[in-house]
Design a protein around this nucleic acid. Structure first.
Length: 566
RNA sequence: GCGCCCGUAGCUCAGCGGAUAGAGCAACUGGCUUCGAACCAGUAGGUCGUGGGUUCAACUCCCUCCGGGCGCUCCA
């Protein structure tokens, strides 16, 4: 907010200084306006003079002086401006400008921070997309949170966002699940059968078999193997998927589209993709298989796209799937994949490039895995062995808010260690409560104010009382340094949303949420809101309201609740 | 072996080419007769894996090496 304005004003000052010949003429360079590490230096600092010094070869502090002269900021916006260190220009804002921001936030309310950068652009965010072969494990949480929060951010930036889950229900793994269920089934109806070697061993597999036996008895004993496995696969995948859906729902993740790979294959889309690739000579036959020339796109060897059995490899249908998404009118596809899929990036992108899809139309975000520990001991998890901690278990233990915040907090590019025992034991220490507590305190104040009939209505008595909250209140009484600090943090919201969204770095939201909470707690500790002084109370209530708006917005983007009480 | 990712406080992690590298947890010391102490104030804790290079300026960019993760399936 302030930053944008300062960037704009400083750019103009640079242009003026150039025109006046105070500094050598040239391009007005990119420069930063940032919050300095030490707040005593000022509210904002810019490195504009340092950048210009590099560009012109002149002394940074000298340039800084010329910029300050050319800027000549209005007194109702800038209280103090000075040159410091190697040539930074430090700026301290004037109170009228700060108060203006508070009024603005109260006026626009929930819309504060919303932007139009993405207006008219349709984005498909595909994430989770776990095989329907068993319940989601904890590791999926990271993927789910990254995708979901990113989708929220993009929506806040004005993009048309659609969330999609790709159901891999056509491959070997669902068949494997069906065989595993089959083995249990035969056991239940008294015709024991050896369990498949890499079958799924979780308890839910036996449950699935029991449900089939309960419904159909031994009817499937007499069916052909194909019919039986077909049916088992169908119902198993459906049941597992329902479970996955419910777990995600409790986690606050909802998809617009659940896209079935089997449906894609049946539609003939995969064959069409293959034909298109063949027409461009990226396909050849060898050893009874059909190959894709992925070496043309930097892969270390060519990859099989159709197996000797006539089945598609996952990668063949993946290309068709992405084409399908583009065909549905999306301008940008974002996939969120685990690091274990890193090798596929070049292949899928290569396949798409071969068909003329522009490289920046598909963005693949790779997240590192979460390594789980229990009291310091590493947990090896596997859906096959059935030894894993479910996402649901985590949610049950710490609640969806803490679980989401925990995952969102850390940049997804770093391998994260997560001690389940510690997380449960210390769930009260989860940083999410620090943020939520700030919101609960605000809610407490507003409740109290409403009960005492103070606040917007009464404080706004006088001219403009009907102009909505904040607008008409006199904010002149805001003058404390903690109030200033809080206002400056609130001012950062649009910038944070923009940077977090454009750079695909959802974890920045958590850092920001903590900053807002910290600034609020500090304000709260030192500045009493409800006092006998009606004007002061009204002014501070406006600031509290602005803080509430920002906290709700940030927590909302994170998919974390903003409690009225804790 | 080849490719990609990661190495920052005891632990989990922030850190945008810029000023004295930060937070939370854990440890220690203080602060509630006033809107919620799930809070606040303070102490302690670091050769930013290593060695070079670029730059007025490097945790940040480039290269070497060391450690860890994940790929290099006709599994996804």
């Amino acid at each position: 907010m302030f930053r944008d304005a300062l960037r704009h004003d400083l750019s103009q000052a640079i242009a003026r200084a150039m025109q006046a010949g105070a500094i050598p003429e040239g391009e007005v360079p990119e420069f930063d306006v940032e919050v300095p590490r030490d707040r005593r230096w000022g509210d904002y600092a810019t490195n504009a003079a340092l950048v210009l010094a590099r560009q012109t070869g002149r002394k940074p502090r000298e340039i800084a002086q010329h910029l300050v002269d050319a800027y000549a900021p209005p007194a109702d916006r800038i209280e103090r401006i000075e040159i410091a260190g190697p040539g930074f220009i430090n700026l301290t804002l004037a109170w009228p400008w700060r108060r203006e921001l508070v009024a603005m936030i109260c006026r626009v309310g929930e819309a504060y921070g919303a932007q139009t950068i993405g207006a008219g652009i349709r984005v498909n965010v595909e994430f989770v997309s776990a095989n329907p072969t068993g319940p989601l494990h904890v590791g999926t949480g990271r993927n789910a949170v990254v995708g979901d929060v990113l989708a929220n951010l993009l929506a806040a930036l004005g993009y048309g966002v659609s969330r999609e889950y790709y159901i891999n229900d056509a491959g070997q793994q669902v068949l494997n699940l069906a065989r595993s269920v089959e083995a249990h089934y035969f056991g239940i109806i008294g015709r024991p059968k050896p369990f498949p070697e890499d079958g799924y061993r979780g308890e839910y597999v036996a449950d699935l078999a029991r449900r089939i036996a309960d419904a159909d008895g031994d009817r499937w004993l007499h069916a052909t193997e194909d019919e039986r496995l077909d049916h088992f696969r169908e119902v198993s995948a459906a049941w597992v998927l329902a479970d996955v859906r419910e777990a995600l729902d409790r986690f606050g993740v909802r998809f617009d589209t659940w896209f079935s790979e089997r449906a894609l294959v049946r539609s003939g889309a995969v064959e069409r993709a293959l034909a298109a690739l063949r027409a461009r000579e990226y396909i050849y036959e060898a050893d009874g298989k059909t190959w894709f020339r992925s070496t043309a796109f930097g892969d270390d060897k060519d990859r099989v796209i159709v197996k000797p059995t006539g089945e598609w490899t996952y990668f063949g249908s993946d290309i068709a799937y992405h084409l399908d998404k583009l065909g549905r009118g999306f301008d940008l596809l974002i996939d969120v994949w685990g690091i274990d899929h890193i090798g596929d990036v070049a292949r899928v992108k290569g396949g798409l490039a071969a068909l003329g899809v522009p490289p920046d139309a598909v963005e693949i975000l790779i997240h590192q895995h979460v390594r789980l520990k229990n009291e310091g001991e590493i947990l090896r998890m596997s859906k096959r062995t059935g030894e894993f901690v479910g996402l649901r278990d985590l949610i049950d233990a710490v609640g969806p808010d803490a679980a989401r915040y925990f995952h969102a907090m850390v940049s997804y590019t770093v391998p994260m260690d997560f001690d389940v025992a510690l997380a449960v034991r210390h769930s009260q220490d989860n940083p999410v409560y620090y943020v939520q507590y700030a919101h609960a305190r605000i809610a407490g104040i507003l409740r109290e104010a409403a009960a005492a009939h103070v606040g917007a209505s009464r404080a706004a008595d006088g001219p403009g009382a009907s102009n909505g909250p904040g607008a008409a209140r006199s904010l002149d009484r805001l003058a404390d340094e903690r109030e200033a600090a809080l206002i400056h943090v609130l001012a950062e919201l649009p910038e944070v949303i923009r940077v977090a969204g454009l750079r695909r770095e959802p974890h920045r939201l958590c850092a920001y949420a903590r900053e807002v909470a910290e600034a609020f707690h500090l304000f709260y500790t030192h500045c009493r809101v409800l006092t006998d002084d009606a004007e002061l109370t009204a002014a501070r209530l406006s600031l509290v309201e602005a803080a509430r708006i920002v906290l709700r917005r940030v927590l909302g983007l994170l998919g974390v609740s903003a409690p009225e009480r804790m």
